[in-house]
């Protein structure tokens, strides 16, 4: 999910950069010598995970997993997602330079919200709560990202309102898939390396 270059109005671009800058500043402050390697390598892992395309009917979508990034990294999700998006811009020209701020915000803000909202549910002892929490986490993270995406388009000009509505609606099936994938992924992590989620 990237907003392309050249569309957004100066105001929206500026708001995106301001929000991303604030998030990155907080995230960086929380990164110390001990957590640097973890953040860098997990950021690389999420970059690679976004190369995974899962089939959806006749089309296919790539995994986003920003909810999971939030659960694992907290505020460090901002610099980690910023880095991954910068690499995508350099390697493939997905997204770009001027929209990096907006794109970071729309992926990382839901990640941080998920961190605080679902951390407790995922670590709980009740299996059903874990499953429900992780589904909503994946579903909500992509949903909020799509809503920020749509809001950025709509705030640029009235002409984009319809395009914004279509974009948000198109993300509903992606939200369901992300929810399912997050459930399975967290079940896997809880069985293989539960310590990863407890930090």
């Amino acid at each position: 999910m990237h907003i392309s270059e050249g569309i957004l109005s100066p105001t929206v671009l500026a708001v995106g950069w301001a929000a991303a800058g604030a998030g990155i500043a907080i995230g960086i402050r929380k990164l110390d010598a001990d957590s640097m390697a973890r953040a860098g390598i997990l950021s690389a892992a999420f970059f690679v995970a976004s190369l995974i395309h899962v089939p959806m009917g006749f089309a296919s979508v790539h995994l986003i997993l920003n909810g999971l990034v939030g659960l694992l990294l907290g505020w460090a999700a901002f610099p980690a997602i910023f880095t991954a998006l910068a690499l995508q811009a350099v390697f493939f020209q997905f997204g770009g330079l001027t929209t990096l701020g907006v794109n970071t915000t729309l992926m990382a803000l839901p990640a941080v919200v998920c961190h605080y909202a679902f951390k407790g549910a995922v670590r709980s002892q009740k299996p059903r709560l874990v499953i429900a929490g992780s589904f909503v986490c994946g579903f909500f993270a992509v949903g909020l990202a799509a809503i920020i995406f749509g809001a950025a388009l709509a705030a640029t000009g009235e002409a984009f309102f319809q395009a914004a509505v279509i974009t948000v609606a198109a993300h509903v099936p992606v939200m369901v898939i992300e929810g399912l994938v997050t459930v399975f992924c967290i079940q896997f992590l809880l069985r293989v390396d539960p310590a990863m989620l407890s930090k």
């Binding site: 973890r38 390598i41 997990l42 690389a44 892992a45 690679v48 995970a49 995974i52 899962v54 995994l63 997993l65 999971l68 694992l72 399912l180 994938v181 997050t182 459930v183 399975f184 992924c185 896997f188 992590l189 293989v192 390396d193 990863m196």
Partner: peptide
């Protein structure tokens, strides 16, 4: 695919 992504994360960690 979820298990695959999960394994990737475990190894990365």
């Amino acid at each position: 695919y979820s298990y695959l992504a999960g394994m990737l994360l475990v190894r990365a960690h």
